[in-house]
Amino acid sequence: MIREWQVNAAIMALLLAVPLWALVADEPFTITLTTRAVILALAAVGLNIALGLGGLVSLGHAAFFGIGGYAMGILAHHAQTYTPVMEWPFLIEGTKSMPLIWVTAIVTSALAALLIGLLSLRTTGVYFIMITLAFGQMFFYFAISWPAYGGEDGLSIYLRNDFPRLNTLRPMPFFVICYVILALALLVSWRIAKSSFGLALAAARQNEVRVRTVGIDPYRLRLFAFVISGAITGLAGALFADLNRFVSPTMFSWQMSGEFIVFIILGGVGRLFGPVVGACLFVILEHWLGGVSDYWLIFLGAILLLVVLFARGGLIGGLAGREVAHD
């Protein structure tokens, strides 16, 4: 049986090889498509910290994805129109600098995750799924009906934001940026899983009482995990907005949250690379099935159903076997 780390290494290599091939073969769209998969994977890697490690099934992660997207949209929109974001109590100017936008996206979505987490983590199980959904819906309706930043029309950013010494308008440099960030996020995710914090978090998922008896408060553990999770998904939102040069309330929709969960399950729950494989598979299916039939969603539904019913452990489970699967 192949080891899981070998599968993971192969995935990372393949993810880099495809755009490189596309660069040589002059197929820029393949690079764009791979970038999309990488960014969606990043969002799901974020969710996986809460879901896979902490057992927190959040159906509202689109809230953080959207906040990250709007952080980019609002800053770049103000930079593009040369107007300040706000003047009182202190002046904030718009910006076209990616690193600044990323920091803003991470901070705002972490704050939102802290707030939502503080309230939502009082509940468990189905109630948790539903309260996170409720918070996601609040953001969705707010974004649609608030006219200042385009409402349902969203915000168009005419040029992709800048990164020092790279031409982000060309597909390949932007891909490389996203790829590196994904790799870093996977590293963070792996370090967390191996840390004492991650072990305590996993223990709290499996047996809450036992964790309490050794004097650890599971609520705090989960809150911390939820905040990190939201921050990573928020960063993915900022990148996604930059990929499309566009933000809109659909980034907040509950279907978006549902798709993140789909990625994780397609790839394999509790696997480090589960979200990456799942997102890639989803993007490929979406792209390929969409050309086969107008009714392609039927086939997508059927494939998802078959995976849930008969291929537990997802794709990585199928490749690497079950020996290291979490509980």
């Binding site: 099934v57 789909v262 399950i265 539904g301 998802l304 849930v308």
Partner: peptide, 24 residues
């Protein structure tokens, strides 16, 4: 087949059913 699964599997499987029913 889903009764003894966790909520995650149930959410996903029935999400898939939505796609099938709607487009069907």
């Amino acid at each position: 087949r889903l009764y003894d699964r966790d909520h995650l599997d149930q959410v996903l499987a029935t999400f898939a059913l939505i796609l099938i029913f709607s487009e069907g």
